[in-house]
Amino acid sequence: MGFKLLSKLLVYLTASIMAIASPLAFSVDSSGEYPTVSEIPVGEVRLYQIADGVWSHIATQSFDGAVYPSNGLIVRDGDELLLIDTAWGAKNTAALLAEIEKQIGLPVTRAVSTHFHDDRVGGVDVLRAAGVATYASPSTRRLAEVEGNEIPTHSLEGLSSSGDAVRFGPVELFYPGAAHSTDNLIVYVPSASVLYGGCAIYELSRTSAGNVADADLAEWPTSIERIQQHYPEAQFVIPGHGLPGGLDLLKHTTNVVKAHTNRSVVE
């Protein structure tokens, strides 16, 4: 069995187990497998329904001669939608809004960016022009300005110390501490036991640490421990890039980060 097929099978099995364990909360999309990078042309966006009122959005972007996937989250909030992270750029984010209108038909009224990198804030200006209120932590807003990236308009308070959590509509926002970046936030959907790890969490097929220019490698494993301790009931975990899975993604990420750190020390 090929690795790609095995990865998709694991996603399907995880979703099936969740649907059985929580039949009222989960209505997993039966329309197909989780979209992969090879299936999404740059400039297009796919939506994948995880649970009743919960979707991931998947886009792709060219970077350094390669094409990478990027995940975000959409959560229903009454007759409105909360968006977590842009679709990595203005063109993708405009396509995301169009796809949401086509498939869901509810307005996106608020959006949260989970850290300051372009795959999370690139497209904020498109959201703002569409009347979406954009939010991020003060740290993310400051770092985005320093980096020359787009800056969300509103500040999220109460997320300055490791372990801080605040309720934001249908989700809980959690600051686990520094990891992929010093400002990275985690998003949890309690009604569906869905954990969105953003770039602080890796997919299972990833074996290298990737972009760690703004990471705190020493603190990252401790931050992941905080996530595990705060959300032990999480059933569906979405990484910032690639295929979702279960809580095993947290341990896998820790292993990859520690291996990278150990290699760096040896070198």
Rank of each mutant, 00 (worst) to 15 (best):
D64H: 13
R46K: 12
S137I: 06
A25L: 09
A94M: 08
L143N: 05
I17D: 03
L249E: 03
E225K: 03
Y196K: 01
E219C: 09
K4Y: 02
S205I: 10
G169I: 02
S56Q: 04
D183H: 02
K258H: 12
A94H: 09
I100D: 00
A59G: 10
G72F: 01
S264H: 11
D119P: 00
P107A: 13
V45Y: 02
V42G: 10
Y68W: 09
T253V: 05
G245E: 10
A192P: 14
A51Y: 15
L185E: 00
L195P: 00
G197C: 06
E33Q: 14
Y68V: 08
I74H: 00
T182L: 06
V187S: 11
S208D: 12
P35Y: 04
V212D: 11
E157V: 13
H180W: 00
G246F: 06
T207Y: 14
E145V: 07
S161A: 09
A209Y: 05
F174Y: 14
D29V: 08
A25R: 12
A136N: 07
S139F: 01
M1D: 12
P69T: 05
Q49W: 06
Y34I: 14
S56P: 06
R167G: 04
I58L: 09
H241A: 01
P221Q: 09
F174H: 06
R128H: 13
I227T: 11
P138K: 03
D125N: 08
L185M: 11
R76F: 14
S162F: 15
W88A: 12
I151P: 02
I224H: 02
T14H: 05
Y175A: 09
Q103S: 13
L143F: 12
W88Y: 14
I238G: 02
V146D: 12
L159P: 14
H252L: 12
V42P: 06
D77V: 07
V42H: 13
S7V: 10
E219R: 08
S70T: 14
P190L: 04
V126Q: 15
A129M: 09
A234H: 15
L159N: 14
L127A: 10
R206N: 14
C199V: 00
D79V: 08
L81K: 01
S193D: 13
D119G: 01
Q61Y: 05
P107M: 11
S162K: 06
S191G: 07
A129G: 12
G240V: 01
G245W: 08
P152H: 09
Y135P: 00
A218E: 05
A144E: 02
F236D: 15
K8Q: 03
S62T: 04
S27L: 13
L250E: 11
L96K: 02
T261V: 10
I186G: 06
D64F: 03
A15N: 02
E225D: 15
D77T: 06
A21N: 03
G65L: 11
H260A: 06
E44C: 13
I84F: 06
S162R: 08
Y231W: 05
S27T: 09
